[in-house]
Design a binder for these strands. Structure first.
Lengths: 152, 152
DNA sequence: AACAATTAGATTGTGCGCAATTGATATTTG
DNA sequence: CAAATATCAATTGCGCACAATCTAATTGTT
C-alpha cells in the first residue's frame, strides 16, 4: 500500500489538533509569565484566584471542578497561596472533611492589580474579540466532548 | 462606574480563551493516557517519538524547536526513552556540542503499534475531520502570533 | 594564535498535574 | 443504633516545564 501524503498523514505532528492545543497552551503560559510575575502568581495560581474573585469561601472540591484539577494539584498550590497571605484555609465546621478557601484582604486587593492582565493577553493574541470568542466557544465544546468520553 | 455584565467581564474564568485552551489540553491528555499507557509512553514522550518517526538521527535542538521545548525538559525525557530502549543518544563527531537522537529497532517498531492512536482521538473528539482541521489551523495561527510576541 | 562571543546540552530548583493510597468523616443500610 | 459503604482532603511518587546556571565546544575577530 502506498504511503499517505504527508498533508493527510494522521501520524504527522503538524496534522494533530492536540499538539496545536498543547503548544498553544504553552505559548499562552509564556505570554502570561511576565504579567503574572508582577503579581507574584503562577498561571494555575492565577486561575484559582479568578475562581475565588468570582466566589469566595468555597471548598477545595468546587475549585477543582471549575478548573478540572484534583486535590493532589490544588492542596500544595493553595498552601503556597496561603503562605503568600492571599487565601486562608479553614476546616468547615459543618463538614469537617472539607477545607474552605477564603480570600484575605490582600487576596481581594490583588483583583484590582490583575485587572489589566486580560487586555494584555488580548493584545498579544493580535486578534479581534469576536474571533477569539468564537474560537473559545469551539474549543470549550471540544473540551466538553472529550471530558464526556473520559467519564465513559 | 457600573460593574460589567458577567458575560462580557474579561476577568471571568469562562470568558478566557486561554483557560479554554489550557483545560482542553488537559482533557486531551486524559484521553491519550490509556492509549499511550499501552505503548509505555507519556504524551510528551509520544510527541518526541512522532518527531523521530518523521526524521531520525537529529540533534536535541531540532526536537526542541519542533515541540517548543528546551533542554531542561528534553534531556531527562530522552534519557528515559533511552532507558526504555526506544532511542540512542550519541555525540555528533562533526560538532561535539550536539547530541544526536536515533531510533532503535524497537523505537521504529513502535510506530506501527501507535498507528491507531490518532483515529481513537478523532473518535473521542466526536467531530468531523474538516472541522478539526479548521480549528487546528486557527489554533496554530494563534499560537504563532503569541510566540511572535514572546520574541519581542 | 589568542581571546571573546555564541551555541549545545546538562544540571538544579520550583511548581504543576495526576494516579494511587491513606485516614477521617459522613451517609446509607441492615 | 451499628456496621458497611461512600466521600473528601491530604499525602506520596513520578514526570513534565521552565528559569537560571554551568561546562564544553565552536565560531568570529583581530
Amino acid at each position: 500500500m502506498a504511503r499517505k501524503l504527508s498533508t493527510l498523514d494522521p501520524q504527522r505532528l503538524d496534522n494533530q489538533i492536540c499538539f496545536a492545543v498543547y503548544s498553544a497552551a504553552h505559548a499562552f503560559n509564556r505570554v502570561y509569565k511576565p504579567l503574572l510575575d508582577r503579581l507574584g502568581l503562577t498561571y494555575p495560581q492565577y486561575l484559582v484566584m479568578l475562581v475565588l474573585w468570582e466566589r469566595d469561601d468555597v471548598p477545595v472540591k468546587d475549585i477543582g471542578e471549575k478548573l478540572f484539577l484534583d486535590s493532589g494539584t490544588l492542596t500544595p498550590l493553595l498552601k503556597r497561596l496561603e503562605a503568600a497571605h492571599l487565601v486562608r484555609r479553614t476546616r468547615s465546621s459543618e463538614d469537617e472533611r472539607q477545607v474552605l478557601i477564603a480570600l484575605t484582604p490582600q487576596g481581594h486587593a490583588l483583583k484590582e492589580k490583575a485587572r489589566s492582565v486580560p487586555q494584555s493577553i488580548l493584545a498579544a493574541s493580535d486578534c479581534s474579540v469576536s474571533e477569539l470568542v468564537a474560537m473559545k466557544d469551539e474549543i470549550v465544546a471540544l473540551r466538553d466532548r472529550l471530558n464526556a468520553v473520559i467519564g465513559e
